[in-house]
Design a protein around this nucleic acid. Structure first.
Length: 583
RNA sequence: GCGGCAGUAGCUCAACCGGACAGAGCAGCGGUUUUCUAAACCGCUGGUUGGGGGUUCAAGUCCCUCCUGCCGCGCCA
């Protein structure tokens, strides 16, 4: 049997083929192959149990019969057995493990293998999407980090990804901002930290508005002027956006995030009229209390809870622009799938948006894209409440990242004082940023999670430093070998020790993990896998010396080191985490 | 009130459309280094998966109910 990139899929296909020739089975049978508990084998097929139950057959007997048909030369690389009530276990023999590792040897092999998953699929990932004139806080990091990882994973899996930063650059806050800019601005402060100064004057104006109605009137007037195209305000609007953007860019740069487009809400402000007209024409939207709203009568809650797509004063809101945005993405980019990465509190909004889009597109004969809301929970402090500074303010993202680097720097100083200062800085950057980022990705995104410096920067457990350390150790082996690292892999002999086999087996499950990660849009599956892989490597490294005299043993162990390094580095790259050669 | 998410070891978290004895890390206890980075590895201890019913050959996972916490619910995004 030729084993493909995804071993679970190979087994699935083969079993289904064999079953289709047996009268006991029909087309509803799904083998359900998945990575197994190592106690039982490498993969297990559980599908016989539910099928036998449905057919009123004895599951154990049916599994035995199916396995009987699998016997023969074609399956020589795989040991097959039936256990318990009807589980079918598969264990790849060492030569088969070696074959796979010799076949999938480099980044391109992995990418080619993975690209079957989403080949050519056109999708948009909408993430980060901050509001202008506001600092990015800790809360903003999850969208960036998750969105970037998801984008990279889809690209790796063959999709054509448009990363769109849907900036909140068109809203009621501009009235106050412009008023504040004109009246309270400190030119010096603006020069040294522009965004900080914008925030300061905005807050000042916001407070004044509450006390002094004339200020509020002025702010409203500025907004109206902006919306009517007043040149001065238009210039200020651009200036404010420019300041925000350059502050955001600094963060994106540090996190290695780059967008293909950044079409903010303002881009869609002249595109909402078409949306109103079409939704009204098809009876999807209606007037209610002066606003234009959409109800969904078939939905238990949204039959009463309106989706407001135009405010009673005639102005658009984010529902309007989000609708126009979907249309644009489908029309201009032929998007087949759109993924939104935002806070879980926006679930109602996206459910209503998706329901509305499906009806709207169906009525207008447009292709309906797949729509996914990748939502996430809150980052908590060690007190179990939403994370804040001691004084109760939100933590600025740039401060958090700076602190991460600084903390990592002192650990590097302690552990490896001999390195050149410049390299120590670089290591600290990679570890600090990587640690914060990994902490976010390693959690199930739909849960809140508790952030603690000790935990994220620990070298123990499921953390970035632990993974980076495993990578550095492997590099160290190759560094020590120098020229002699150019071994001939074909001279590798099949794996013998428990640690070798366990590591090899773990490497083979990567394709299934990638598939799971993208299927559920949950990067923590990949994190858990990489952590386990690094653990298996550490066990192997500790038990089996790589640089031994026996050429065949040495070759196969170097092979394991190379493939582990490949998967760890590629996996971390997909998560957006930079690796190091030494640390 | 309606709805979403969550409740798993002392703490922080896993457990893939129901699948084999619920797994890690930390903390606690005990080991491993003339050997490739000990920032590591190995072992032990630790559980009525919030409570109670139910479905199933099989339930942390599905259904019902109750308790607790976070979040959302008409013109912010």
């Amino acid at each position: 049997m030729e084993i493909g990139f995804n071993v679970a899929e190979t087994l699935e296909t083969r079993i289904a083929a064999v079953a289709s020739e047996m009268e006991e089975f029909d087309e509803t049978f799904a083998p359900d192959v998945r990575p197994a508990d190592p106690r039982f084998g490498d993969f297990q097929a559980n599908g016989v149990l539910p099928f036998a139950k449905k057919q009123g057959l004895n599951p154990r007997a049916l599994a035995d019969k199916l396995v009987g048909r699998l016997d023969g030369g074609a399956w020589s690389g795989v040991e097959v057995s039936v256990a318990g009530p009807g589980f079918i276990n598969f264990t790849l023999r060492p030569p088969a493990l070696l074959d796979w590792l010799l076949t999938y040897r480099g980044e391109n092999d992995l990418k080619n293998g993975a690209s079957d998953l989403y080949q050519g699929k056109k999708l948009v990932v909408d993430y980060s999407s901050p509001n202008t004139a506001k600092q990015m806080h800790v809360a903003h990091i999850r969208s960036m980090v998750l969105g970037e990882a998801i984008s990279r994973l889809f690209e790796f899996s063959g999709a054509q990804v448009v990363r769109d930063n849907h900036i909140g650059d068109w809203g009621t806050q501009y009235g106050k901002l412009i008023h504040a800019y004109k009246h309270y601005l400190d030119a010096e402060a603006l020069k040294s930290d522009p965004l900080e100064e914008l925030e300061r004057v905005y807050k000042k104006c916001d407070n004044l508005c509450k006390e002094d109605p004339s200020v509020l009137d002025s702010a409203r007037a500025e907004l109206v002027k902006l919306q009517r195209g007043d040149p001065e305000n238009r210039t200020l609007w651009e200036e404010i956006n420019r300041i925000s953007e350059s502050a955001f860019e600094a963060i994106y740069e540090e996190l290695g995030i780059r967008f293909d487009t950044h079409l903010g809400e303002s881009f869609y402000r002249d595109k909402v009229g078409e949306v109103y007209a079409e939704l009204r024409r098809h009876g999807i939207a209606q007037e209610s209390e002066g606003a234009l709203v959409v109800f969904h009568p078939e939905h238990p809650r949204f039959k009463k809870q309106p989706f407001i797509i135009r405010k009673s004063d005639g102005a658009s809101n984010y529902a309007s622009t989000d609708l126009a945005t979907v249309l644009y993405r489908v029309r201009e980019w032929k998007a087949e799938k759109i993924i939104y990465v935002t806070d879980g509190r926006q679930q109602d909004h996206f459910q209503q948006l998706f329901l509305t889009v499906r009806k709207w597109f169906a009525s207008t004969g447009r292709p309906v894209p797949e729509l996914d809301h990748v939502w996430f929970g809150t980052i908590l402090g060690e007190d179990g409440k939403a994370i804040k500074t001691r004084s109760g303010n939100p933590i600025k993202l740039k401060d958090l990242l700076a602190e991460a680097e600084q903390r990592a720097r002192s650990i590097v100083e302690e552990k490896n004082p001999g390195l050149p200062a410049e390299e120590k800085d670089d290591i600290a950057r990679a570890i600090g940023i990587g640690a914060v980022r990994y902490a976010d990705l390693a959690q199930n995104r739909t849960s809140d999670y508790v952030f603690s410096w000790d935990k994220v920067l620990s070298f123990e457990g499921n953390t970035a430093p632990y993974l980076l350390y495993a990578v550095a150790r492997i590099h160290s082996i190759f560094g020590r070998m120098g020229e002699s690292a150019e071994i001939d892999e074909s001279s590798a002999t099949p794996f013998e020790t428990g640690q070798e086999q366990q590591l090899a087996r773990k490497l083979l499950t990567l394709p299934e993990i990638l598939k799971m990660t993208l299927g559920d849009l949950r990067p923590h599956f990949l994190c858990t896998y990489l952590y386990e892989l690094a653990g298996d490597f550490s066990g192997f490294y500790n038990a089996d010396k790589v640089l031994v005299d026996d050429a065949g043993v040495k070759a196969r162990r170097i092979l394991l080191c190379r493939r582990t390094l490949l998967v760890l580095e590629e996996g971390l790259r997909l998560l957006g985490i930079r690796t190091l050669k030494r640390m």
